[in-house]
Design a protein around this nucleic acid. Structure first.
Lengths: 322, 322
DNA sequence: TTGAAAGCGCTAACAA
DNA sequence: TTGTTAGCGCTTTCAA
């Protein structure tokens, strides 16, 4: 591939002059500029981003760390991030942590090796001190996305508030026993449980962690048989909700009459499921766009910002399953 | 961030010696090696991949180009690629073409700028001369994945053969009128149509292109009403199939009795849909692993290979919808 | 407005 | 076994 030095030789100017032309510096004689540009075009010149990055300027690389790219929600998020970044001339190095803190740790090394200009990350445990250390250790800006990391730049939907919204909705619909599918420290469950406890349903609210489909079926059935009040299941994400719907159908229960089911993330399949899935929507595109914008601001105007936490509203999408 | 030169200064050796130690070169005195390693650990040294890449050796970057990362199938593919690459010490620059040839063209420039060692790509039109030119223009190895690009390295499922398998299955099940959702030049439809034509059903086989849900509903209904023989719909992917199921339900038709529905890609949701979706599975993980392995071989042992086309078998996953 | 020279952090060739 | 030297392709002084 042709280099600036080569173009300089061919056009009889110095290499820095070629650099000036190619970077749009105006203080170059028009005839020289034309000559250089023509030569660059002719030989299909491409900047060597490594060399440029090496001597201190931007690499125009962004690190993107997600927990599971195969999950439709994060796939969509990654897509939006990529679009927003590309529009501003940045490329993406993608990494999948698979919910494994060790992978997350490894990624730290990768982004440092490639001297990325900044990082957008979905942390595994955003509340842990490890995450704060991680962010501190990196000497580039890090923006936490879809999770709330206190004291750090983060763009997220308030999961606890969303959980409370779900609880309120389920109560309104007449449900009186509640099961959450997911970890008990999940913000959604925290808010969900808190709201229900305030209304006197603490004892009627519990959670189960999904390991595999059969285990979920057994636990869900046992839970359902363990009470008489009208039951509702709040699934930690739409994929879980899909499995819950399947199990409930196999048990011969009617939705939403005998069991209500509500998901989370509003993945695109929800609107076509049978029954159509009630769920909670996050403004993914908005979050991604704003997070990228903010990150690039941090990169391009360093030292002018203090960390900001940007909460976005979740929106209940009510369909046939509740 | 600390550099090799800095470590050299602190440990009173030359900078190339530091390089030798850090690269595991054995011909270094044990005491020096220890001193250097200790210093590197203490200061949390990270290689500058840009500097390394600059002077000619590998960048250990792979370009990955997909048509739509938000599609579960490609998200899964990207995940498998990322896992395989990481295991071999390579990182991924991800790009989404969104089925737009112009984006594809732009990506060409990006991967060249970053001097990636190789590219894995899902081309938009793998049969076009543009794609062959694209591959030729890049002076790094390119492996085409999930599509068949004649004469180039490619790892794919034979879509025409898969389409024929679907046709055979639907005939076996007693369906006699056939609608494909997707473009008529899609390999799946080509094979599907060819097989059915051979069996005398050319006139009973047609296709519709999905633009939006309402348009699909109108066209599907009109098509269904337009005949009396038992009808089956072959959807170009599982997302389309999901929409078809929804439409069919709204029309009050029973699946699989009145209408058969079969998808493509075997995305994870299919097994939990109501009814469970028959579909065609591609060996994604296998393809990804082998494609990455092959690409790294091309990178690490240049000039020893001639292009190979690797066809993988598709597998019919028969569930409740046919 | 242009060029000469230095240097980013690393590897590779050669010498000692 | 270790050090010296050069150079990858670019940007950034500093002079002219």
């Amino acid at each position: 591939m042709i280099t600036m030095a080569e173009i300089a030789r061919l056009t009889h100017v110095s290499q820095p002059t070629v650099s000036r032309v190619l970077n749009g510096n105006t203080k170059v004689a028009p005839e020289i500029r034309e000559r250089v540009l023509a030569c660059a075009r002719e030989h299909d010149y491409q900047l060597n981003a490594l060399a440029k990055g090496l001597q201190g300027s931007r690499t125009h690389l962004l690190g993107v760390l997600v927990t599971d790219i195969a999950n439709g929600f994060f796939a969509d998020l990654a897509k939006q991030i990529e679009i927003a970044a590309r529009q501003r001339g940045y490329s993406i190095i993608l990494f999948n942590s698979d919910y494994n803190p060790q992978n997350e740790q490894e990624y730290l090394d990768v982004v440092r090796r490639y001297r990325v200009d900044g990082v957008l990350a979905v942390p595994i445990r955003e509340t842990s001190t490890e995450w704060h250390d991680y962010v501190k250790k990196l000497d580039v800006p890090v923006v936490t996305i879809t999770r709330h990391a206190a004291g750090l730049d983060s763009f997220y939907v308030d999961h606890a508030a969303a959980g409370a919204q779900v609880a309120q909705h389920l109560l309104d619909r007449g449900y009186r026993r509640f099961l959450f599918i997911g970890k008990d420290y999940d913000g959604k469950y925290v808010g969900f449980h808190r709201y229900l406890a305030e209304k006197g349903f603490a004892d009627a609210t519990t959670n189960r962690v999904l390991q595999d489909h059969d285990q979920l079926r057994r636990e869900l059935e046992a839970w359902y048989r363990g009470g008489t009040a009208r039951a509702a299941v709040f699934a930690g994400n739409d994929i879980y909700a899909l499995q819950v719907l399947d199990i409930v159908r196999k048990l011969g229960l009617s939705v939403p009459e005998q069991v209500g089911v509500i998901g989370f993330d509003d993945t695109s399949m929800g609107r076509y499921l049978n029954p159509r899935l009630s769920t909670v929507s996050q403004p993914t595109a908005d979050m991604a766009r704003q997070a990228v914008g903010w990150l690039l601001d941090l990169i391009e105007h360093p030292g002018e910002h203090t960390p900001e936490e940007h909460a976005f509203p979740a929106q209940l999408i009510l369909r046939e399953s509740t």
